[in-house]
Each structure stands twice: as structure tokens, then as C-alpha cells.
């Protein structure tokens, strides 16, 4: 549904996208992650035809960019901080957006109410948007982009202003939309969110995709055994030095009184680590296997790349 090949974009002499290539399949939820300034929003703006690119090609829903504007109903774009006409009420805004799709006033109102229910904004629909919180504006933005029932949704940091409950609801909505055949391209820095909902993830770094895999593939490839231990008292420096010397120990770190042991080989961990910790004469409060989050993988791969 979205195909980008060797896309380049510069602002003045500053290149932002360097031969960016990616492919998003129909009905897929594609997570687009990268550091601040990596070019995520620029890519979104390019796809939404708000910005021009310098070279490369871009096809959306089978429609090449050079062929002219996208047909109506192809794309819905929710920017990170969507701008609204603050003097309108939420309901008026949705009816206005609905009317852009050529619907009758009655149809506009009915569909707008449905969308307000979907994003849990029914109670606030009569209030002026200028009084909305940022989270409410993001919810309204989501409702607005669904007004035209687009085939492809571009969501730029859609949950950045939402509370945990709002993020959970958004995840459900996105999953449900995907099940109804929508293709969703989502960028976020809240990696925990997209880890749960995305089919594939593209890691953007320095203006190009340097890794594009499914969440399962990422976990398999980057799953390094690591354990987290909490001791009843402070570990003596010598004990730490001894632990570092073991051949299966990759790296140790201390975070808020917890010790995290990254191991080279999982088999050795089961035997060597527990034995080595037991040899230290300090009682252990807890010892747990750590689950690698997408954030760990992201930091690790970016560091390797740099």
C-alpha cells in the first residue's frame, strides 16, 4: 500500500532523508521508530503531500506521487500536534470534515456522533476545541481522520499526549481498524505501544531505514539473555570484579539498586550465574529473567550502527 524507494529530502544544505526505502503491505500495522530528528515527521509529511521530496519515488495505494494529488479517501493523516479551528466545537469540526467528503448534513452529523463515541469524546462534543486538552485534541484528530474512511492511516505520535488508559484504548482502536483492512503507518517514541500492536517495525536512523523486521524476528535476533537481581545489601566491589571475569558475562549495569547481568550464552546463565551469585555471601531478594523490550533492541541496534 505504501512503497517508498530511495527517497531523498533536504532542508537547505541539511539532508534529512537519505535514500529512504520501505514497503508497507495492505492491512499491515507498520511501526516507524527513530530518534528525535531522524526524519519520521518529514517522512509522514511527504506521504501526506504536505512537503515535496527531492528525489526518489513514492507510491501510495497504487498511486504514484508524480501522477498528481492522491484521490480522496486514500489517506488520513494525524500529525503529532494536530491543528484545529479553536472557535469550533468538536462536533462542528467533525461535521465540517465530514462535509468535505460530500456527505449530506444529516449523514455528517450521524457519522460524527459515531466517531465521537469511538474516541470517547461524546460528552465534550459540544465544547469549543480551544478548551480541549492535548489528549482530547489527539482523540478528536483520530476521529477526524476516520471521517473519510481512508484506506491508509498515517499516525504521527498518536499517543504522545494520552494517559495510559487512552493509550490502551488507542491500541484497541488501531488493532480493530487493521482487522477491518486499514493499512496503518504509525510513528511513535513510546515503543511499548507499537511493540504490542505492530506487525512490522522499521528503524529509521540518519535518514534511512537500517532495519526492517517483524517484532518476532527482532526478538529472536536480538534476544540476549539477561537477568535482574536485587540484593539485601550493597555488593562489595571485589564481588563485582569477580563476576565480570566470567567468560559468559557480557555486561553488568546497576539501575536504582538493581543489578542487570547481560549474558553471552543462555545455557551458561542457568548454571554459572546462579552459582556465582550464590557464592557471594549476600542474600538475594529476587532474581528474574528480563524481557527485552523494543526499547532495548532499539538502543542496542542504534548503538551498534553508530
Amino acid at each position: 500500500m505504501i512503497r517508498i524507494d530511495n527517497l531523498c529530502k533536504s532542508y537547505g544544505s541539511q539532508p534529512v532523508l537519505k535514500n529512504l526505502s520501505l514497503h508497507v503491505r495492505k492491512g499491515e500495522i507498520y511501526g516507524f521508530i527513530g530518534k528525535n530528528g531522524a526524519g519520521k515527521s518529514t517522512t509522514m509529511n511527504l506521504l501526506a503531500e504536505l512537503t515535496r521530496f527531492d528525489s526518489g519515488s513514492c507510491t501510495i495505494g497504487g498511486h504514484a506521487k508524480k501522477e498528481g494529488p492522491l484521490p480522496k479517501g486514500t489517506l488520513g493523516y494525524l500529525p503529532e500536534d494536530p491543528g484545529f479551528y479553536g472557535y469550533m466545537t468538536g462536533m462542528e469540526y467533525l461535521v465540517f470534515i465530514e462535509s468535505l467528503h460530500g456527505k449530506s448534513r444529516k449523514e455528517c452529523r450521524l457519522h460524527a456522533l459515531e466517531l465521537m463515541d469511538l474516541v470517547k469524546m461524546r460528552e465534550a462534543c459540544g465544547r469549543k476545541i480551544e478548551g480541549y486538552s492535548r489528549g482530547m485534541r489527539q482523540r478528536l484528530g483520530l476521529a477526524a481522520i476516520l471521517a473519510g474512511d481512508p484506506l491508509i492511516l498515517l499516525l504521527d505520535e498518536p499517543s504522545s499526549a494520552l494517559d495510559p488508559e487512552g493509550r490502551r484504548e488507542l491500541s484497541h482502536i488501531i488493532k480493530s481498524l487493521s482487522q477491518h483492512g486499514k493499512t496503518i503507518f504509525i510513528s511513535t517514541h513510546i515503543l511499548d505501544d507499537i511493540e504490542k500492536i505492530c506487525d512490522r517495525i522499521g528503524l529509521l536512523h540518519d535518514g534511512s531505514i537500517f532495519m526492517e523486521k517483524s517484532v518476532g524476528e527482532l526478538n529472536r535476533e536480538f534476544l540476549m539473555p539477561s537477568f535482574e537481581a536485587v540484593f539485601e545489601s550493597v555488593l562489595p566491589p571485589q564481588a563485582l570484579k569477580n563476576l565480570e571475569k566470567f567468560p559468559w558475562m557480557d555486561k553488568m549495569e546497576e539501575r536504582d539498586g538493581r543489578f542487570i547481568f547481560h549474558l553471552k550464552n543462555e545455557e551458561s546463565a542457568r548454571t554459572g550465574l546462579v552459582k556465582a551469585l550464590a557464592d557471594i555471601d549476600i542474600p538475594i531478594q529476587s532474581l528474574n529473567r528480563r524481557k527485552h523490550s523494543l526499547e532495548d533492541i532499539f538502543i542496542r541496534t542504534v548503538n551498534i550502527h553508530e
Binding site: A48, E49, L50, P69, L70, P71, K72, G73, L75, G76, Y77, P79, D81, P82, G83, F84, Y85, I97, L100, H101, G141, A144, I145, A147, G148
Partner: peptide
């Protein structure tokens, strides 16, 4: 204010 972004992406 970015207010024309949504209408423009809807094909206006």
C-alpha cells in the same frame, strides 16, 4: 497553527 493540514490531506 497547522489547521489546514487535515483538510488538505482529505483532498481539499
Amino acid at each position: 497553527k497547522g489547521t489546514w493540514v487535515l483538510p488538505l490531506t482529505f483532498g481539499v
